[in-house]
Amino acid sequence: MTADPPLVLDIDGTLTRPEGWGIDPRVFDPIRNWEAPVVIATGKAFPYPVALCHFMAVPELVVAENGGVVYTGDDVFFTADREAAQAVLEDYRAAGYSSGWGPENTVNRWRETEIAVNLEQPVGPLREIAAKHGLEVIDTGYAYHVKDTNSNKGDGLETIADRVGIDLGAAVAVGDSVNDVSTFRAVGRSFAVANADETAKAAADEVLEEVHADGTLAVLERVRGSA
């Protein structure tokens, strides 16, 4: 009997409902019942993917904050720190702008290595300020992420693979954004959902006809037992 291949799954735009907000509950059972390691690789703050793994009852293998935080289930690795990104945000505020998340700012409250800014905020000044601090800004379609230029999901995935013993050549990844390109390069097969940005589509081995979780579910059905 053939085995399921390892999976690497993004969250926003990939496990979400077609309207783009909230996890589609249809993904829970297929992921929970997957017979190979499942890595959640996301731009979300560290606690979110850990909680998702917990509620899906799968091992907590996580690449968070676009590679800034890597969790192998036993050890946490940080590839950047928040200090520089926070300085960018302070300069952005001093220039008259805002993160755009309101006073409680739960989007950034638990971030360890980067800062996310609402897409409704002007990105030009943000990029200029970030560059002065030696950082970059990436647009994931859900936020502008101010991050270290060296951190990425692909490198984080390789750290987990080395620690846990995952054959990335046999792994399958699904994503939707520029921050998934490094993941696509690290695995054997990669799929971009139909709602993906053009950079992700160009990097993927295949662009799916279905959007969001519909696309991910189609991949899971197709590759189950293919390893």
Rank of each mutant, 00 (worst) to 15 (best):
D12N: 12
G102R: 13
A3M: 07
S182R: 01
S177E: 08
T79Y: 07
A196P: 05
A80H: 11
S190N: 07
T216V: 06
V27Q: 00
E206R: 15
P5S: 12
I115R: 13
F28W: 02
P49L: 06
A116L: 04
I129Y: 07
P59G: 05
P47C: 06
L168M: 06
P30I: 04
D176F: 10
E104P: 04
R111K: 13
R93Q: 12
R222H: 10
D24Y: 10
G141I: 05
G165P: 00
A57H: 15
P122L: 08
P47I: 06
A94G: 04
D205A: 11
D155Q: 09
P125Y: 07
L217K: 10
A41D: 02
E35H: 13
K132C: 11
A116C: 14
M1S: 15
E83F: 08
V107Y: 07
D214A: 12
A170P: 00
A218S: 15
E60R: 14
R163S: 05
S177A: 15
G169N: 12
A45V: 02
T113A: 12
P37R: 06
N33Y: 02
L7E: 00
G156V: 07
L52D: 01
G22K: 14
E112R: 15
R26K: 13
I115C: 10
R189I: 02
G43Y: 10
A161Q: 02
N118E: 14
R111S: 10
V223Q: 11
F78Y: 15
T16Y: 04
E112Y: 13
A116F: 01
A130P: 05
G13K: 02
F28K: 11
P37N: 07
R185Y: 08
Y48P: 00
K44P: 04
V62D: 03
A204V: 03
T183N: 00
L217P: 09
F28G: 02
P59K: 01
R32L: 03
T16V: 09
A36W: 14
T149L: 12
V62P: 01
G134V: 09
E120M: 09
W110H: 13
K132M: 08
N105G: 09
M56R: 00
V63G: 00
G100M: 07
C53I: 04
K132D: 15
A161W: 02
L220T: 10
A204C: 10
I115W: 05
Y142V: 14
G43I: 06
A192S: 08
F46W: 14
V39P: 04
E60F: 06
P47A: 06
V187I: 09
V187D: 01
I40W: 01
A87E: 14
V137Q: 04
R224H: 02
N66E: 08
R127W: 08
L9H: 04
W34N: 05
A194C: 09
R93W: 11
A200F: 03
A3K: 12
L89Y: 03
A116I: 01
V50P: 03
V178Q: 06
Y142E: 05
V39I: 14
V107E: 15
A161K: 07
V63A: 03
T113L: 10
P30M: 07
A143K: 06
A186W: 01
N150S: 15
G20H: 07
A213K: 03
A45F: 04
V207A: 08
V187Q: 03
E221N: 09
K153E: 01
V69Q: 03
A85M: 02
N66P: 01
K201E: 12
H54I: 04
L220K: 08
G156L: 07
L208M: 11
